[in-house]
Amino acid sequence: MTAPAAERLTMTVEEAAAVLGIGRSAAYAAVRAGEIPALRVGRKLLVPRQRLLAMLGEAEA
């Protein structure tokens, strides 16, 4: 069973795109350019929640 998105340490690129208010393609392009932090686990790209929030200047409540 997967934890709710708010409790996970990582999010998908699609979830990060929604947080940033950008499209899926733009988010993947930003990951490739190194503008969005991401980790590759096998074939999957995961965005560390804390690093994304830190990049935005926010702290998780």
Rank of each mutant, 00 (worst) to 15 (best):
M1R: 13
M1K: 11
M1E: 09
T2P: 15
T2N: 13
T2F: 12
A3C: 04
A3G: 04
P4S: 13
P4F: 08
A5I: 15
A6W: 10
A6G: 05
E7D: 07
E7M: 05
E7T: 05
E7F: 01
R8P: 09
R8C: 07
L9K: 11
L9Y: 06
T10M: 04
T10C: 03
M11R: 14
M11I: 14
M11K: 12
M11A: 12
M11F: 11
T12L: 13
T12E: 12
T12S: 15
T12I: 08
T12V: 07
V13M: 11
V13I: 14
V13T: 11
V13C: 10
E14V: 15
E14I: 15
E14N: 15
E14F: 13
E14K: 15
E15L: 13
E15S: 13
A17G: 15
A17N: 08
A18D: 14
A18R: 15
V19A: 11
L20D: 02
G21C: 11
I22Q: 08
I22Y: 09
I22T: 05
R24F: 08
R24C: 06
S25E: 09
S25C: 05
S25W: 04
S25G: 04
S25A: 09
A26L: 11
A26P: 03
A27P: 08
A27E: 05
A27Y: 02
Y28K: 06
Y28M: 04
Y28H: 10
A29Q: 13
A29Y: 05
A29R: 14
A29K: 14
A30Y: 08
A30H: 09
A30M: 07
A30E: 06
A30T: 03
V31E: 03
V31P: 06
R32E: 04
A33C: 04
A33V: 03
G34S: 01
G34M: 01
E35P: 02
E35G: 09
I36S: 01
I36L: 11
I36R: 05
I36G: 00
P37N: 00
P37Q: 01
A38L: 02
A38E: 05
A38G: 00
A38N: 03
L39I: 13
L39P: 02
L39W: 13
L39S: 02
L39K: 13
L39F: 11
R40M: 02
R40G: 00
V41M: 12
V41T: 03
V41C: 10
G42P: 07
G42R: 08
R43D: 09
R43M: 10
K44E: 15
K44N: 14
L45D: 09
L45K: 10
L45P: 07
L45T: 02
L46R: 15
L46T: 04
V47Y: 00
V47F: 00
P48T: 02
P48G: 00
P48V: 03
R49D: 03
Q50S: 14
Q50R: 14
Q50V: 11
Q50D: 15
Q50P: 02
R51T: 00
R51V: 00
R51Q: 06
R51W: 00
L52G: 00
L52N: 02
L53W: 12
A54L: 07
A54R: 12
M55I: 01
M55S: 06
M55Y: 00
M55R: 07
G57R: 09
G57Q: 06
G57E: 01
G57S: 07
G57L: 08
E58P: 02
A59G: 04
A59T: 07
E60K: 08
E60W: 11
A61T: 05
